[in-house]
Design a protein around this nucleic acid. Structure first.
Lengths: 115, 115
DNA sequence: TCAGTGTATAAGTATATACTTATATTTGCA
DNA sequence: TGCAAATATAAGTATATACTTATACACTGA
């Protein structure tokens, strides 16, 4: 396995961001597929502004990327980030979030975007 | 590798604790050997109460253990904690802290306790 | 061009956090 | 027994955080 040592302070910043139930769940959801804001709102059962603010923190830190497609903005993990290896390790240690996405799909709330 | 899935919320709590430069350094130091409070104070260049308060948080969460030996209280990683595997993964991703302990030793500030 | 949907941002507020200084507790030793 | 060293705890304070509600912005389709 390739091994790049990241500054301890950078690691601390990433861990701090992931040290929040909401954001850790967001990252967990993104492990399986990209998602748009309204999907997070539905899964997390939180207000839209609150979700947006969490996403902004993750984006500002570079942990996630955003991509607009029509009226939706899709978020995905940024595999280029220096702390991505740590995120991957953490993702292996938490319960899979796929189930929540599948429930969304069954409820007809999954966004399908062909743009 | 054995694989125990830990509740996402428990993981978030551990990450939150490690998402602080001081505490992450403490954990990094404990990777190599147990340490007593005055050693942390020296390495971290922080006040003793501040260090004690960080150690208390780590201990309250069960991430570290304490053991009194004479007038010193030694701290060590708690390998029994459910999130210990995550901590190990993180420790592999941060710069080694051994150097700091060696510097302490050379300065004659390493505590040797035979109790 | 306008209304509706999805998303971001701003401002306010309550709580959490990480220090500080002061003091208490425990142990070792003269 | 009493003082010094190591550590913990308490109380105070400034800053950070995570919500809330209100509003702005961007895109879609009629």
């Amino acid at each position: 396995m390739e091994k790049t040592i990241i500054e301890l302070e950078d690691t601390a910043k990433t861990l701090k961001l992931l040290g929040d139930k909401t954001r850790l769940t967001i990252i967990g959801l993104l492990k399986d597929s990209e998602c748009c804001v309204c999907e997070f709102v539905e899964v997390l059962q939180m207000s839209q502004p609150s979700v947006s603010q969490h996403l902004r923190k993750l984006r500002d830190a570079g942990l996630v990327k955003e991509q607009r497609r029509g009226q939706w903005i899709f978020y995905s993990l940024n595999a280029q980030h220096e702390t991505y290896p740590i995120i991957q390790q953490i993702l292996e240690q938490i319960p899979d979030q796929k189930e929540k996405l599948r429930a969304l799909e069954e409820a007809g709330l999954r966004i399908q975007c062909d743009l």
